[in-house]
């Protein structure tokens, strides 16, 4: 018989992506084996992140202040917007150290099977940002798989009448993988070698 508090901890840990009951149990026993202050600090970090982070209303990235640090940084190039699927892809682009423009996080990709259309993503917000007139180039950095490519194609078509240059990161990114797994060097080269859509 597993004590109830332990059972509850395991169930909560099971919610994490990629964590099954076995891993959850290992994690639970690890937490229990550590000093109380570590558990408290973990719990505080969970609640703190949830309470203090929100999505930037302009670009959709995770932020404490709205608008976010990227959107308000006057040193960043305001004529370029890099479109990514998820906030973690934004961090991947930042790690390359080669991008100095603004971002737009879609929070997903077009997926007819899962009922995710343009309205479910932040695509209308992107169109609005472009129509405000400052933007000269849209760099589409969605995943190099079917859903990412289809989303890129949709955005490229949407941008056509808006008179803005649309490019797609390409070079060296093999088909099928996820952007977040590309190493910094490859992603940097892909950014450099972006092609017109």
């Amino acid at each position: 018989m597993i004590p109830q508090p332990l059972q509850q901890l395991i169930e909560e840990l099971c919610r994490f992506p990629g964590v099954g009951p076995k891993t959850a149990q290992r994690m639970a026993f690890f937490i229990l084996s550590r000093p109380r202050k570590e558990a408290v600090s973990l719990a505080r970090a969970l609640v703190g992140a949830k309470d203090n982070l929100r999505f930037c209303t302009l670009c959709g990235s995770l932020t404490e202040a709205d608008p976010c640090a990227y959107c308000t940084d006057s040193r960043r190039d305001r004529h370029t917007i890099c479109v990514v699927q998820e906030a973690r892809d934004l961090f991947a682009m930042e790690r390359t150290g080669q991008y100095r423009g603004l971002y737009h996080v879609l929070h997903g990709a077009l997926s007819p099977l899962d009922g995710v259309g343009p309205e479910e993503l932040r695509i209308p917000d992107l169109a609005k940002r472009i129509s405000e007139g400052q933007v000269k180039e849209i760099i589409i950095a969605t995943n190099p798989n079917v859903e990412g490519e289809a989303t890129a194609a949709y955005i490229a078509r949407l941008c056509k009448p808006l008179k803005v240059k649309v490019t797609r990161i390409a070079f060296g990114l093999p088909v099928g993988g996820d952007l977040e797994y590309a190493d910094d060097l490859t992603l940097g080269r892909a950014l450099e070698g972006r092609q017109d859509m």
Binding site: N145, V146, E147, G176, Y181, T186
Partner: peptide, 16 residues
């Protein structure tokens, strides 16, 4: 490992 960019399987298990 099909989400890794160096995966040999990735392109073969993509949709369509």
């Amino acid at each position: 490992g099909a989400r890794k960019t160096k995966s040999k399987l990735a392109s073969g298990v993509d949709l369509f």
